[in-house]
Design a protein around this nucleic acid. Structure first.
Length: 491
RNA sequence: CGGGGCGUAGCGUAGCCCGGUUAUCGCGCCACAUUUGGGAUGUGGAGGUCGCAAGUUCGAAUCUUGCCGCCCCGACCA
């Protein structure tokens, strides 16, 4: 009983932290707001990254890499952009250290002050558009479809493991197009890729929508997003895709000649998802026993645990498992045989439950006699006896089944937690009760949105893309409204 | 930045109010043995700038002052 997890009901935040720390995904570090991603957590990120990368490449994007440092003057070229990020920038002012002449150890050399300060990128639009200026002259250079996998820094006041860290890993796509329509199509294409990834790989249902002006990315014309619902009834933005119009092209003077030799500014998009997705994944499926990972992303899909008395039995099991492992791997199943004898089976059972491994197989001498194994699935905690013949195929099917099951479970929860509210009282009642998404009328003004946020801490998560038009009255002001939007308290 | 909590071995803790042997206990770690179908047991062992600094005192984990760090809640945000 060395690793107790706080229950969700007792303290949801603590539960979340326990899962991350005790599940071996990450650790706190010596640096405020920055975490260490441990091998198991990083393996999960690699799986997510690899799949997304594949999807980006399938849609014609290429990877590139731009500098970590952004000259201060670049950031201020797009007015809205700098306003959005100025308050959370880490700034490099010097380039050298020296021994303190007063014996105080190492100090910053005052003579080594940079002429122009460098900002550690909070996002890379500016450095990238400064570069695109030199890459784009003609419509023949378009579209330019680039993605970058990188780390970025945002000096957040309050941080949380994976959900909001001062430094985080992400990908940022930055594309340039000849027409507005093409850029809008790209924005939506990437939004759909994010949604597909969230639903099919993370098994996490999301709502696609567009942000209100208040919630829009700094420098964008339109911000699209996917919004997911966590088990505590709070929403989480899982990915964003921005139509940037010609804002950055104008700020960085990026023009191209069209077929008629007419000069025009190019149209831009940017889109990103981050290690925050790991936080989303954790909160979407896990329970009080630990993580529950979707098979498609789990670093370990099947763990095999031997149960034996003495070397003779152990050897027998080893032989059997060796053959099984080959059949598992042939089907592309990520399997681990844990025959470490430091820990007994019971300990391992608990440990792999904590780590969210989708399937656990226990195999002992008496199983081999009967040509069976014990299979336990993490999502339902169900145990069953399965024949060794065709085991890999059966597990392959079961992994798919688990993937589908946790998706349906999450979707059922999500759907049950979308409520309609037509009055302020109803609205507050849901928020202070179960939470979740609230579909409500809003008069469309930023002032009202701010007021609602101030009064209820709920924000407009998005205006769903497939929204039905419907006459109604704003829940706060009673002013006329043409459609409902989704509110929630959010991470 | 405001509110709350915390800092003692890798982790979790007792001791602090009321200063006084060698700083408590559990987990983990190392060795050996017995074990292995839901977090094993025994025996032996290693491991400590009590967050940092100054002060009070014969004597400080304990009292005083200052500082630092972390976590949780809120404002900011992906």
């Amino acid at each position: 009983m060395s690793k107790e997890i706080t229950s969700r009901q007792q303290d949801y935040s603590q539960w979340y932290n326990d899962l991350i720390l005790k599940g071996g995904l990450a650790d706190y570090s010596a640096v405020r707001g920055c975490m260490v991603i441990k091998p198991y957590g990083y393996a999960l990120w690699e799986n997510m990254r690899d799949q997304l990368d594949k999807m980006f490449k399938e849609t014609g994007h290429q990877n590139a890499y731009f500098p970590l440092f952004i000259p201060k003057s670049f950031l201020s070229k797009e007015a809205a952009h700098v306003q959005g990020f100025a308050k959370e920038c880490a700034v490099v002012t010097h380039y050298r250290l020296m021994n303190d002449p007063n014996g105080g150890g190492i100090i910053v050399d005052p003579d080594a002050k940079l002429e122009e300060e460098l900002i550690i990128r909070p996002t890379s639009e500016t450095i990238i558009w400064n570069t695109y200026k030199t890459w784009i002259q003609s419509y023949r250079d378009l579209p330019l479809l680039i993605n970058q996998w990188a780390n970025v820094v945002r000096w957040e006041m309050r941080t949380r493991l994976f959900l909001r860290t001062a430094e985080f890993l992400w990908q940022e796509g930055h594309t340039a197009h000849a027409t507005a329509q093409e850029a809008i199509d790209e924005t939506l294409l990437m939004l759909n890729i994010y949604a597909e990834f969230a639903e099919e790989w993370m098994a996490m249902p999301v709502i696609k929508g567009v942000k209100s002006i208040n919630e829009r990315f700094a420098g964008a014309e339109d911000t699209y997003c996917i919004e997911a619902l966590m088990q505590d009834g709070k929403a989480l933005q899982a990915g964003t895709s921005h139509f940037l119009g010609q804002n950055f092209a104008k700020a960085f003077d990026v023009k191209f000649s069209d077929k008629q030799n007419k000069l025009d500014y190019v149209w831009a998009t940017s889109w990103g998802v981050s290690t925050r997705l790991i936080g989303a994944l954790v909160m979407a499926h896990s329970d009080d026993e630990g993580l529950v990972l979707p098979p498609k992303l789990a670093p370990i899909q099947v763990v095999i645990i031997p149960i034996y008395k003495g070397d003779e039995q152990k050897n027998l099991i080893d032989e059997k498992v060796k053959v099984l492992m080959i059949t598992f791997k042939a089907l592309g199943i990520k399997v681990k045989y844990d025959d470490n004898d430091n820990n007994r089976p019971g300990w391992k059972f608990a440990e792999y439950e904590m780590k969210g491994v989708p399937i656990r197989i226990a195999i002992g001498a008496r199983d081999i006699e009967k040509n069976v194994v014990e299979v336990a699935r993490r999502d339902t905690k169900e145990k069953m006896t399965v024949s060794i013949d065709g085991l890999a195929e059966a597990m392959h099917v079961l992994l798919n089944d688990i993937q589908t099951n946790i998706y349906s479970r999450a979707k059922k929860y999500r759907d049950e937690n979308i409520s309609k509210a037509d009055t302020w009282d109803e609205f507050k009642k849901v928020l202070d009760g179960p939470g979740g998404f609230i579909s409500a009328h809003w008069d469309g003004t930023a002032e009202t949105e701010d007021k609602i946020k101030e009064l209820s801490k709920a924000t407009i998560r998005c205006i769903p893309l497939s929204n039905t038009q419907e006459e109604g009255k704003c829940i706060l002001t009673g002013n006329p409204s043409r459609e409902r939007v989704l509110f929630a308290r959010a991470y």
